[in-house]
């Protein structure tokens, strides 16, 4: 009897540890693998490259985490990236932007984010007021957002040279990419929002039991709209970063498939798809894992297509662990 009990305890311990720290364990495994196998892995250069690439996924994944915490999902993040990315060069390359470079630059940063905010409002209102299922509601902008972006740019690639704007994607602070610091700052801010503010508490309560939250006076609509707005604005920001990195805006490719990366990162990071949990740093961890797997395969000469399959495997593993956690 005693032996059975202790064995069971051990098993529960083992599985619960796997559930709680699965992401960190996976990260450790990938790191060790790379240190042994991948040439030149332990170089600051490698770190910088990875940070600059992971930042956009992480930023969008954090927004996605908030939306998922309400029990929703946002498919439109990639399209919003394309839209905001298309707007920025249009603004600072315009006559106005050329005539007043400083004002043009500010407008080129603010207007796209404002447009993203409107997209978020749109998503949030359709979901919370019209009560359309999130996957359908955000499908609208998923389809039309990129379309609008391409119409705005006539489907052309817009190249530019604007060092101030490009700082967003190529600048460095203490040797590390600017967008990495930006992602970290956003993470700290969102962590505070989720764990310390009333908005955050309501967010988790609504995801955990929407009816109970409403009956306890929770502003269900406002909080849900808030989550979609934050997610969209962060996507808009990520869209600007991508454009800044490339010094070019390609509405057809900017943010393409980002919704999948972001959802995967959020899920790997521990967000529950039925809501009620918002692990912000988990989203970053998830983004890092996905980025590192991509990098590992690429650096070892495995083709991009195979990397996609590896990504799917990670999601499968994360979902499996989640299911186990539910029981």
């Amino acid at each position: 009897m005693t032996s059975v009990t202790s064995e069971e305890t051990m098993r529960t311990d083992y599985t619960s540890r796997l559930k709680d720290h699965g992401g960190l364990i996976a990260l450790a495994v990938i790191l060790v693998f790379n240190i042994i196998v991948t040439p030149n892995f332990l170089q600051t250069q490698t770190l910088a490259v990875n940070i600059s690439q992971v930042a956009t996924i992480a930023i969008v994944a954090m927004g996605m985490t908030l939306v998922i915490a309400t029990g929703g999902i946002d498919l439109s993040v990639g399209a919003v990236m394309a839209l905001s990315g298309a707007l920025a060069p249009l603004i600072f390359l315009s006559d106005f932007g050329q005539a007043y470079p400083v004002l043009g630059l500010i407008a080129a940063l603010l207007c796209p984010l404002l447009a993203a905010l409107v997209c978020g409002l749109f998503n949030g209102i359709i979901v919370s007021v019209l009560k359309v299922q999130p996957i359908i509601a955000t499908l609208i902008l998923f389809i039309s957002g990129r379309g609008i972006a391409q119409v705005l740019t006539n489907g052309n690639l817009q190249t530019f040279s604007n060092p101030e704007f490009s700082y967003l994607g190529t600048g460095k602070i203490l040797g590390f990419p600017f967008q990495g610091w930006l992602a970290l700052a956003i993470a700290c801010l969102l962590f505070w929002v989720v764990n310390r503010t009333i908005f955050g508490r309501y967010l988790l309560a609504i995801g955990g039991n929407e009816r109970a939250a409403r009956l306890a006076g929770g502003p269900v609509r406002r909080v849900k709209i808030g989550a979609y707005v934050i997610c969209s604005v962060l996507s808009g920001l990520a869209g600007l970063i991508v454009v800044a990195i490339n010094s070019a805006s390609d509405a057809a490719r900017n943010g393409n498939l980002m919704e999948l990366d972001a959802i995967a990162a959020a899920v790997v990071g521990g967000a529950l798809l039925h809501g009620g949990k918002a692990p912000i740093f988990g989203a970053i961890l998830g983004a890092v894992i996905i980025q590192l797997v991509k990098y590992t395969l690429l650096a070892n000469g495995v083709e991009d297509e195979v990397a996609l399959i590896a990504k799917a495997a990670i999601i499968l593993a994360a979902v499996y662990i989640q299911q186990a956690r539910k029981e």
Partner: peptide, 20 residues
């Protein structure tokens, strides 16, 4: 269905209506 938020703590459940 309409009372508890099961995954939240006793503390968070207790103060849910009081947050403002």
């Amino acid at each position: 269905a309409e009372g508890i938020v099961p995954d939240m703590s006793v503390r968070e459940n207790l103060t849910l209506a009081l947050l403002p």
